[in-house]
Amino acid sequence: MKIKLLFSLMLFAASIASFADNKPSADDDKGLIKICIMYPFAEGKKFDMAYYETKHMPMVAAFLGTNLVKYTIEKGVASGIPNQPLPYMAIGTFYVKSLSEYQKAIAPHRDTVRADFANYTDVMPVILVSEVVR
């Protein structure tokens, strides 16, 4: 009985170790192009996070096809400086393999994407395109 339990524990530990070895690292994103769409906070402005998460971002992600590696959605909660206003109320980020492929995929849908803004916000986003270094 003790041997069976010990063997089971060893198998469990081996499977956990295997899982940990396969865990993605920050370096997995290295070289990807990151498109951050940042929505500045302003008193009295609206942002419908539920719509953004369930409709807008999935729509844009579908336009990107296989060039899209992943996307994230962030909800601003505080400024990094105490007692200062929140800088951004939301940030949507697309990680893609190729900037030129991203631009080709978005170009025919640009008007559709912009027209959808009115469904979730009245804020003009700030967009930053960068390359992941680490």
Rank of each mutant, 00 (worst) to 15 (best):
Val123Lys: 00
Asp122Val: 06
Ala78Ile: 03
Met1Gly: 11
Arg114Met: 09
Met49Leu: 11
Thr112His: 09
Ala20Trp: 14
Ser98Phe: 01
Val77Lys: 06
Met89Gln: 15
Ala50Val: 13
Lys97Asn: 11
Ile37Gln: 03
Leu86Lys: 10
Phe63Leu: 02
Leu6Trp: 07
Lys45Phe: 05
Met124Tyr: 07
Thr121Glu: 10
Glu74Trp: 07
Asn119Glu: 08
Met59Cys: 02
Glu43Val: 04
Ile37Thr: 14
Ile81Ala: 09
Glu53Met: 11
Leu68Asp: 03
Leu68Lys: 13
Leu99Tyr: 09
Asp122Tyr: 04
Asp28Val: 01
Phe41Glu: 12
Ser130Phe: 00
Val77Thr: 08
Ala118Trp: 03
Ser8Tyr: 06
Val60Tyr: 04
Cys36Ser: 15
Val60Cys: 05
Met59Asp: 03
Phe94Val: 08
Gln103Cys: 02
Pro87Trp: 13
Ile35Asp: 07
Ser18Thr: 13
Pro24Thr: 12
Phe7Lys: 04
Val96Asp: 12
Val69Cys: 01
Glu43Pro: 01
Ile91Leu: 13
Leu5Tyr: 04
Gly65Met: 02
Met38Pro: 10
Asp48His: 13
Ala62Val: 00
Leu5Gly: 03
Asp27Ala: 10
Asp21Arg: 13
Ser100Leu: 05
Tyr39Leu: 07
Val123Asn: 09
Arg114Lys: 14
Ala13Pro: 00
Arg134Phe: 06
Ala90Tyr: 10
Leu9Met: 12
Phe41Asn: 15
Tyr71Leu: 04
Asp29Ser: 15
Val96Tyr: 10
Ala107Pro: 07
Phe12Met: 15
Met38Tyr: 04
Ala17Glu: 03
Arg134Val: 04
Asp48Val: 10
Met10Lys: 02
Gln84Thr: 09
Ile3Arg: 13
Tyr51Asn: 10
Ser8Cys: 10
Thr66Cys: 01
Asp27Val: 00
Phe63Arg: 03
Ala13Phe: 07
Arg114Cys: 00
Ala42Ile: 01
Leu9Phe: 10
Met49Ala: 12
Phe19Pro: 00
Met59Lys: 12
Ala90Asn: 09
Gly65Leu: 00
Leu11His: 05
